[in-house]
């Protein structure tokens, strides 16, 4: 049921947001989006993703016909509250650090019997196609931590190592344009065209930014995850394509999550 509704609503919202996103590119665009946000502030369409994600979490429509309730996201099997604000983390059963999405891939393969391909091949909803199950699950699981504080202590040596790798990646400048995350996200009040760029060296901004994903993107009419945001920054950065579910993203997310440590987790948000 929920999923059908999402698809209907997506259609409607895309149509009504077209007027905004294709509007004249002046500073008025920012205030128009703000107005639109205020208008919808009590009713973030991401609610629908949460409902559908919950439905999927309990669903037994998979090869092994079991729900994800046995999936341990770090706080015990089936415990969702507070799981997201402590991820990525070290998982002793697999002896590695995983972010939420790697852990979900693991659970869906091991508990539900999906193939790796089935668990990873459709992470981001494509225009005009069905909503990605991963985006729905992630939005639901993350929303269960809303109102809590980011808590990334880096106690395990493997976690510390992942953080160091992520930090290296943040400063890494390569490719045809010599861009790194650092190019676009290390100064205050900077913009690319009209898009404001958060400064991850500023703890307040890092907290606010990290704590807002997944987010409902008005311009896309979709809920997007942090993975999708980073996938697209790689593209703008002229980097090669990032493989979904690989350690590379987990390292980067570990660095960003730690930069936001102690901050309020307040997603799903609404964005341009």
């Amino acid at each position: 049921m929920g999923r059908l509704v999402i698809n209907l609503i997506r259609l409607g919202l895309v149509i009504c947001s077209l007027g905004l996103s294709h509007g004249h590119a002046d500073d008025g665009t920012i205030s128009a989006v703000q107005e639109y946000r205020d208008l919808l502030s009590d009713s973030n369409p991401a609610e629908l993703w949460i409902l559908s994600g919950e439905e999927l979490w309990f669903s037994t429509t998979n090869p092994n016909e079991v729900s994800l309730e046995k999936c341990d996201l770090g706080k015990g099997p089936g415990v969702l509250k507070g799981a997201y604000v402590e991820l990525p983390r070290y998982f002793p059963d697999v002896e590695k650090v995983m972010d939420l999405e790697q852990r979900l891939i693991h659970c869906r393969m091991v508990i539900q019997g999906l193939s790796r391909y089935e668990a990873t091949s459709y992470p981001f909803t494509k225009r005009g196609e069905e909503t990605s199950e991963i985006e729905m699950l992630v939005t639901f699981i993350a929303s269960e931590s809303k109102g809590m504080r980011m808590n990334i202590p880096l106690n395990h040596v493997a976690e510390k190592n992942m953080f160091d790798l992520g930090k290296q990646l943040f400063y890494f400048r390569a490719g045809s344009h010599d861009f790194g995350c650092i190019t676009c996200h290390s100064g205050d009040n900077k913009r690319i065209r009209l898009q404001e760029l958060p400064n991850f060296k500023n703890q307040e901004q890092a907290r606010k930014t990290y704590g807002s994903w997944p987010a409902y993107r008005v311009s896309a009419g979709e809920v997007r995850t942090m993975q999708h945001r980073l996938y697209d920054c790689f593209r703008q950065q002229r980097f090669p394509e990032a493989t979904y579910g690989d350690d590379l993203m987990t390292a980067l997310i570990m660095f960003l999550a730690k930069s936001a440590d102690g901050g309020l987790y307040n997603a799903p948000a609404m964005k341009r």
Partner: peptide, 17 residues
């Protein structure tokens, strides 16, 4: 270790090799 992370996590596509 960093090299391995990049090599495994990234892949060529279009003009980016």
């Amino acid at each position: 270790q960093f090299h391995e992370l990049l090599e495994n996590g990234l892949r060529s596509k279009g003009p980016v090799q």
